[in-house]
Design a protein around this nucleic acid. Structure first.
Ligand SMILES: [Zn+2]
Ligand SMILES: [Zn+2]
Ligand SMILES: [Zn+2]
Ligand SMILES: [Zn+2]
Lengths: 160, 160
DNA sequence: GAACTAATGTTATAACATATCAATACTGAA
DNA sequence: TTCAGTATTGATATGTTATAACATTAGTTC
């Protein structure tokens, strides 16, 4: 399991690399990375934190790419379905996938103070939850795993 | 790990037993189970499924216990903080705790068809997520673990 | 019964999300 | 290259979930 999220890094490269991967996957899978979708993915990648749909919409609106909620939600739906972004249920917010390209079941470490999010990959049907599901005869289709707390940076005095 | 939720049972006894436990804990911990709070807990226990705040409010309103959103949200906040109910993030809904009284980190199996919810207890900081958090220097305060899919009953033809 | 705290009543609004239908752009075949 | 079919976008309206703010009432303590 690789955790990606709190360490410092060459963020410019991180963003452009992810965009390149996304473009490649769209070309390969016959998906259309239209201007709005492309820009929303960029916004998520650049911010590296969970953004609400209306945060996104604010950017789009400022850039003349659309002013109404469906614009943001459609782009986010596309990105989530394509696997380029994930929805964070506990925040009603969205974040760029940190493992672009690979099929995976993500787990998140979410800082309640700065909203930064680290993404871990998990083994889906293994682990306690999978065992409980099998025992109960429950058929898992999707799993939400989100830990909330304080990231390393926010533990040093500045948080509540 | 005990999973509680999909098996059939003497539901009348299940509800009254839970209410008795809740009353005992309130008496012991100097918490006040006021009429609205009591009724909301009953509603959650009786339904045995995830209910939205406005579902709850509908019942309360029909019974003359309050008509405005804060009435429902305050009662639900109380029950969640007291450990008598849990919030299901993936549904924006609430469910009575199936392990009333014990301190625990719940995990849920949520049927997307009938909204029934089974609650499992998990070992919090153990497991892969805990390891990832320690590796990243992340301090977990709260964990959301919610699997969505089909319950045993809904797997037999009636679901999409 | 005065002072304090907890709970409720009430109004308004914030925040998040979708339904619907019209218009346009792209795609692939006749 | 026109046509039909599909995907995307534009636009309006509305639905759903949640909280802020402040007044009032009820319990509790001294
Ligand atoms: Zn991912
Ligand atoms: Zn932080
Ligand atoms: Zn519980
Ligand atoms: Zn079901």
């Amino acid at each position: 399991m690789t955790t990606i999220g709190f360490e410092t890094h060459d963020h410019r490269a991180c963003v452009s690399e992810a965009m390149t991967k996304a473009e490649a996957r769209c070309a390969a899978s016959d998906l259309r990375l239209t201007p709005v979708r492309r820009r929303v993915l960029e916004l998520l990648l650049v911010d590296h934190r969970a953004l609400g749909a209306y945060d996104i919409l604010g950017h789009l609106s400022a850039e003349g790419l659309g002013t109404q909620p469906p614009v943001a939600y459609r782009a986010l739906d596309f990105l989530v379905k394509a696997g380029f972004a994930h929805r964070i249920e506990a925040l009603n917010a969205y974040i760029a996938c940190a493992h672009l390209g690979a099929d995976h079941t993500p787990a998140f470490l979410i800082c309640r103070n700065c909203r930064s999010v680290a993404e871990s990959d998990t083994a889906p049907s293994q682990g306690r939850l999978g065992v409980a599901a099998r025992d109960a005869g429950f058929q898992i289709e999707h799993t939400v795993i989100e830990a909330q707390g304080l990231c390393p940076a926010c533990q040093t005095g500045n948080a509540a």
